[in-house]
Design a binder for these strands. Structure first.
Lengths: 187, 187
DNA sequence: CATAACATACCAGTTGGACGGTTTCGTCAA
DNA sequence: TTGACGAAACCGTCCAACTGGTATGTTATG
């Protein structure tokens, strides 16, 4: 009998908001804080409403992870379009996409943290494995050198360091790091 | 009135066993499976006994994380002792220690997975941050080049890839990767 | 009016942890 | 040597809060 019941229906917006709330909870308080009650409570949507959009908790987590992967894919594709050199293009795209996602303020906050938390659930690791396998097969012609692999691994390392808050370095040394990584992709 | 009550007291052994059980649960079924009931049940220790060793669940997780850090420190120190060249020594030690920890069968299984799961808890990230900061200050003289930083980041990437099961590569290409990383530490 | 988009009420199982009990152990006086 | 005794190492039970999920509404929208 609350007023929320009478508000305008906007399924896509509510769904998006639920995902963002789940992401915020995950990054701020860890996986154990992501409960149906907490998500519904913090988003102003009833638990019934939440379970209407996501039939189970696992479905919610999978949807959240998928939305993050889509965002990553889009960022990579955008970076690759601006890159004229074929050799190592995907690796550079991966690098720049990961760097770009970390500081865009809009949308899901703390992209890295959420991803990390989600990857701690064994069920979601399979999805990530498939994602990596598909890409490494697709770009086997241009991005399979040892140095390219190192750059991608280092990118994951940066991603990890960003989310953990370790390795706090100033802007200039960070830029030198990135420049060197880009240089490695072209060898 | 069970027989377990009458067994010989071996506090250190029991404590160690509790940590190992918690680690196994974390790596196999994720953070959500690490409950006091599950740990006590799987280790044959009562919940009371468990809470005697670790006054709270958080204490248990912190103790587990600390034991992993100690293991990492020991492995790094061992690798560094066998390395005559000062320049980049810590970075190589870090690299080899992380590689060594992943396939040693004895002790805590799936070192990487457990670490990952634990790092998904925000409270434990602080501990990791401190660990990194201490090391980077200690070895600022020998391991602060851009390439050394890249190697360490790539090491984290390998660590991540191992635990996620992505990047499955054969032994020879893995060795070439490592060789190249070691080479980078010496530039 | 049919269906999607919500809300409310409720449930059975699980959770972390408090609590009081029992057994072993180290220690130190007799 | 012994044995008393306090502390440490356990055990088993109970509980309030919370968990994911169901069932059944009510409202908006096409």
């Amino acid at each position: 009998m609350s007023t929320a019941h009478h508000r305008k229906k906007q399924p896509l917006f509510v769904r998006q908001q639920l995902l963002e709330v789940a992401a915020r909870l995950a990054s701020e308080k860890g996986m154990t804080a992501v409960t149906l009650d907490a998500v519904s409570g913090a988003s102003g949507v009833s638990k019934g409403g939440l379970l209407h959009h996501f039939p189970s908790k696992n479905m919610l987590l999978e949807a959240l992870f998928d939305s993050l992967l889509e965002r990553l894919d889009a960022a990579i594709e955008e970076a690759m379009r601006a890159d004229p050199l074929p050799h190592g293009r995907f690796t550079r795209g991966y690098l720049h996409a990961c760097l770009a996602l970390r500081d865009q303020p809009q949308g899901t906050k703390d992209w890295a943290q959420v991803t990390m938390v989600l990857l701690s659930e064994p069920q979601l690791r399979q999805r990530w494995r498939e994602w990596v396998r598909e890409r490494s097969e697709e770009y086997v012609g241009t991005d399979s050198s040892v140095d390219a692999a190192i750059v991608r691994l280092a990118t994951d390392g940066i991603w990890l360091a960003d989310l953990l808050g370790s390795h706090d370095m100033d802007q200039s040394s960070r830029q030198r790091l990135i420049d060197r990584l880009v240089e490695l992709t072209k060898l």
